[in-house]
Amino acid sequence: MDIWLPENVSTFGQGVDNLFILIYWITLIAFILVTATLIAFLILYRHRPGHKATYIEGSTKLEITWTTATTVIVFGLALLSYPQWNRIKSPTELPPADVVVEVSAKQFNWDMTYPGPDGEFDTEDDLQLENQLHVPVDKIVHIRLTSVDVIHSFFVPNLRLKQDTLPNRFITVWFEATKPGRFEIPCAELCGFQHSGMLGYLTVHSQADYDAWKAERWPPQ
């Protein structure tokens, strides 16, 4: 049984994992220090006959020290996260797309719409598949997310990608998969009685496979 992050298969996922691991170490050390101090104090200063507590009202020096130390650490963490966050979510840093797919959530399915060879939506050669997302490896994929009813959340654990979908609004997210394979796309936002089980599949193809898949769907004239 794996009790750590599942395999990461996106280009930006490593950045997320690195931050996670950094915070993991910081919080683990903080936790150990605090807990060890706590336990040490509980043992050292337990009530014993003949010992009196020492009257200490506080220490401005200590207050300033630990306030500054924690501020520096958490602010440093924030600074480290800005570029990662912008890289993944900022609309102004969106890398140009190789492939675009429109994903529309509806209770309780993902409708994946492919624009077809002409690259345009709302044309005759559009292809709609339920719960099946096919993309090529090592290419930048744009997903135009929307919803026809309530809020859902497009979650691909292996890509470290999550984005809520909103009715009547399009939100574009991107990813670049680094490895072929089949990955699950659960819905992560409560969306009704069958929210549990709302599930799609992402298939990342090698370039050759992807071309074959395309040729099968849109046979060359």
Binding site: L5, G15, V16, L19, F20, I23, I26, T27, A30, F31, V74, L77, A78, S81, Q84, W85, I88, K89, S153, F155, P157, R160, L161, K162, A188, E189
Partner: peptide, 20 residues
């Protein structure tokens, strides 16, 4: 423990993954 786990989620890139 609760405060420290808050830090993970306050961190936007990590929250992408662990939100919800």
């Amino acid at each position: 423990i609760g405060g420290l786990s808050g830090i993970y989620m306050a961190n936007t890139p990590v929250d992408i993954y662990i939100h919800d």
